[in-house]
Amino acid sequence: MIIIGLTGNYGMGKSTVAKMFRELGAVVIDADDIVRQLLSDYAVIYEIKKVFGDDIIQQSEINKKKLAEIIFEHPHLRISLENILHPMVFKRIDEEIAKITDPSAIVIIEAPVIFERGYQNRFDKIITVYTSEDTAIERLKKKGVLEDDIRKRLKSQFPIEMKIKRSDFTIDNTRDIENTRKQVEEIYSKL
C-alpha cells in the first residue's frame, strides 16, 4: 500500500484531480469532507465554542461562514482551530486506511495544508496540483466566491512554488481537463 498526499492551493484543482485518481482505481480520502463531518459533532462544537465563543454557534451548529471569516482574518485563530481538528482528522484517516485490505492499494489523501503544518512525513509521496493564482481566482469567481475571500484564503497558504519544489510529483491544471487527466494517468501508472 502506498499513501499519497494530494495538495495544492485554494481553487487549483485538488478535487478534480482526486476524482480522476478515484476513477483510475485509487482509494481517495478527502480531509475537507472529514472536517465537515467533525463540525457537526457535538464534542467538536463544544471545543470550538471554547475558543471562538458563543457567537460562532447558530441554532446549535457552527456558523461555518463566520468561522471562515474569522480564521482567514486571524492566522493565530486558524492555527487554534487546526489544533482542535487535525488530530481528529488524522485519526479518521488512519481508521479509513485500516479498513483497506488490498496491500497494493494506492491511497490518495486530499489535504490542503500538508506543508503548512509539517505533515509531509505522514505520506510516502506528495503530489501538488497547481495553476496560476489568476486562473484559480477566475475559476472560483465563476463559482460565486468573492475575490476578497479568495485572496485571504490563498494568502493563508504557502506559495504554490514552494509546494511544487517539495513535491514528488506535480500536476499542471492550467490547461484543459484532458491535459490534466493525461498527467494524472501518467502519475498513476508510475505509482
Rank of each mutant, 00 (worst) to 15 (best):
L85N: 08
V113S: 08
K141N: 05
D124W: 03
R22V: 00
D148R: 14
H74C: 04
I29V: 10
I127Y: 05
D32C: 09
L6W: 11
M1D: 09
P103D: 07
I45S: 01
Q183L: 06
L146Q: 11
T16S: 14
M12S: 14
K165H: 06
I93K: 11
T170C: 13
L81M: 15
H74S: 08
K190Y: 10
A31S: 15
D102H: 09
I126L: 08
I84T: 06
V17L: 05
S80G: 04
F115L: 09
D134V: 03
K165W: 01
R122N: 07
I100N: 01
Y188M: 06
I108C: 10
T131M: 08
T131H: 02
V17S: 02
D32N: 13
Y119W: 15
I100D: 00
G25N: 06
A26G: 09
K163T: 05
R139C: 12
L24Q: 11
R78I: 02
D94Q: 07
E161C: 03
N179T: 12
E73N: 13
Q58I: 12
Q58M: 13
K190M: 12
D55G: 15
K99W: 00
I93V: 15
F169Y: 15
R117D: 02
G144P: 13
V113W: 04
M1S: 12
I126G: 02
D176H: 11
K182S: 10
L146P: 00
I160C: 07
S156D: 06
M88C: 02
I57C: 04
I29H: 07
F21G: 05
I45C: 02
R151H: 11
I106F: 02
L146Y: 06
E133A: 08
R117Q: 14
I187A: 06
I150R: 08
G11A: 06
A105G: 07
K152N: 12
K64Q: 09
A105D: 00
G25P: 06
D168Y: 00
F115H: 07
K66F: 07
K163N: 10
I114Y: 00
K14W: 00
I84F: 06
I97K: 11
D102T: 04
R139N: 13
I71V: 15
A18M: 06
R175W: 06
E178L: 15
D168R: 01
E110Q: 13
I84P: 12
P112S: 14
K125F: 14
I3H: 03
R151A: 03
D94E: 13
I177V: 12
R36I: 03
T170P: 00
P75L: 06
N179H: 12
E147A: 02
V113P: 01
K19D: 14
D41N: 15
H76C: 03
P103H: 03
G53Y: 04
D149K: 13
A18G: 13
Q157H: 03
K165G: 01
P75A: 03
D168P: 01
Q58T: 12
R122Y: 14
G53D: 07
Q59M: 10
K182W: 05
K64G: 01
V184N: 05
M12L: 04
M12I: 04
P103R: 05
M88H: 12
N63T: 09
Y46G: 06
R139Y: 07
M20K: 15
T131E: 02
